[in-house]
């Protein structure tokens, strides 16, 4: 359940917090400055970072998944946007307008840009490093634990659900077929799922307790803080760009 790709690259070496800041700044810039050029520049930078991070190929399926959304955005805007005036081309009776397509294109760039910007963060950062960084920045270790464990427990849970389904089918429960059949099967399936997770949560909390989960001491960390020489400089530059963009938008 983690998208992290283990690689040896410059981007992997950058500390998680810097990458978090990058992801947010890069994702927001095309909204603050709504021009195609800005969106394109940021997108190109994100793609370059993905390439340097040796994870560019991993972003393609993610973009592919959202392709439906992207294409429908462009088409709907191209046809129906209220300020459409300049027809560009048509398929039979359906006319596509320049303004709408242009705006659709901007939306498309923003979506892809968002995916790529967060791709840089998620594909090159180990989830536990990311959580550890947040804890060190003051986030509650408990919240950190919950986020971290959910990522691993979801696949575990789907295995449990498969077993429960088998157990109930073995008692003659039909789980496939008409809607009515599926509705009738819901309770026998969801009941054990809930009880099972309550029981394992209780057991797991005992295991956590005896390993000092409630300790009052200040936590230490096995892995050294992922420091990056230029972290402060890059963070400062990113934040400056962000502030500059806002000022630009307000005053120019």
């Amino acid at each position: 359940m983690t998208l992290y790709v283990k690689q040896d690259s410059l981007i992997h070496e950058i500390d998680p917090i810097t990458k978090v800041i990058y992801a947010f700044v890069a994702a927001l810039l095309p909204y603050i400055l709504p021009s195609h050029t800005v969106a394109l520049i940021v997108l190109v930078i994100s793609i370059m970072l993905l390439v340097v991070g040796k994870v560019f190929r991993k972003i393609i399926p993610l973009i592919g998944l959202s392709l439906f959304l992207i294409v429908s955005l462009v088409i709907i805007q191209g046809i129906f946007r209220p300020d459409n005036v300049t027809p560009l081309f048509h398929f039979g009776p359906i006319i596509f307008y320049k303004e709408g397509l242009s705006y659709g294109l901007l939306l498309m760039l923003r979506v892809i840009n968002l995916l790529c910007a967060f791709g840089v963060l998620i594909l090159t950062t180990k989830p536990d490093d990311l959580i550890q960084s947040f804890i060190q920045k003051g986030m509650s270790p408990r919240i950190g634990y919950v986020i971290g464990s959910v990522l691993q427990l979801i696949p575990q849970m789907s295995a449990t659900i498969a077993t429960i389904k088998d157990a109930q089918r073995s008692r003659g429960l039909e789980t496939e077929g008409s809607l009515l059949v599926r509705i009738k099967a819901f309770l026998p399936l969801i009941g054990p799922v809930i009880m099972n997770s309550l029981i394992s949560t209780r057991e797991r909390s005992i295991a956590l307790e005896v390993r000092g989960f409630n300790a009052k001491q200040k936590k230490t960390f096995l892995h050294e803080v992922h420091t990056y020489k230029y972290a402060k400089v890059i963070q400062a530059v990113l934040i400056l760009i962000f502030i500059f963009a806002i000022l630009w938008r307000i005053f120019l």
């Binding site: 989830p127 536990d128 464990s149 691993q152 797991r204």
Partner: peptide, 9 residues
Amino acid sequence: FTQMTASKY
């Protein structure tokens, strides 16, 4: 199973 924290890789 339940003795594994699930938060470590």
